[in-house]
Design a protein around this nucleic acid. Structure first.
Lengths: 122, 122
DNA sequence: CAGCATCCTACAAGATACTG
DNA sequence: CAGTATCTTGTAGGATGCTG
């Protein structure tokens, strides 16, 4: 029994919600570290601005570590922080449930189409 | 190893993201069924419009069941659907991680303040 | 290379009023 | 009671150009 007043789900959501945030996290789950443009290439459609801002937010939540090399041309590496690793089981679970949910909705829609056809032919 | 291209996390997020969606789900996790105004009273600050639209979205995702009694005054009961129950472990996990995350961020901030003071006093 | 600054738009969310 | 129907607003997200 969980009370709404004590619900901490929003804290979890805030950390990973955003059109791109979890898409940024996923490459980092597998690869140790990635550079800015590596991530950009890995995530189709993301703009520089969005990649930057979402990375900053992930940093603020201490999920991602940013390592700057003082050199020219610049080199910045991003990796999952220790705290960020605690997210892995949760993301796994969300991934699993997301797949199951998509399948459930798909079969539901198929049934709806069948019912529509029955009504139409009757 | 999860591939970004196969990532289903967004499906999970879509289903439960929204400023109020999980706050609507929580009362339903504990109580079997609730009426519209019961929910409204349970969730401080929510407007009728938001409660309605978010409930519709939850319905569309087959997470919540809507039962209408044909009577005057109207009576509509909302409850967690069978499929919605599959969300419980996930919400539990998000709740737990959310609490741990909040604690982590809190201690991090305390450390930052300590460091600031050290710098200031030096 | 890895950004920042600026401007812009679309849509989520809120306020308010009305109704079967 | 349990909603719609409008109108308004805040902000996430996007397009584009510039830079250490």
């Amino acid at each position: 029994m969980i009370l709404l007043s004590e619900c901490q789900v929003n804290n979890a959501l805030e950390a990973i919600v955003g059109k791109w945030k979890h898409k940024i996290l996923f490459p980092l789950l597998n690869n140790k570290t990635m550079r800015f443009n590596e991530l950009k290439r890995e995530i189709p459609g993301i703009t520089q601005k969005m990649l930057t801002s979402q990375l900053r937010e992930l940093e603020d939540h201490d999920l991602v570590t940013r390592k700057v090399y003082a050199q020219i041309p610049p080199k910045v590496e991003y990796s999952l922080s220790e705290h960020g690793k605690s997210l892995i089981p949760l993301l796994d679970m969300m991934n699993e449930w997301g797949a199951a949910h998509a399948a459930h909705i798909a079969t539901k829609k198929v049934e709806q189409i069948k019912n529509t056809k029955k009504e139409g032919s009757s």
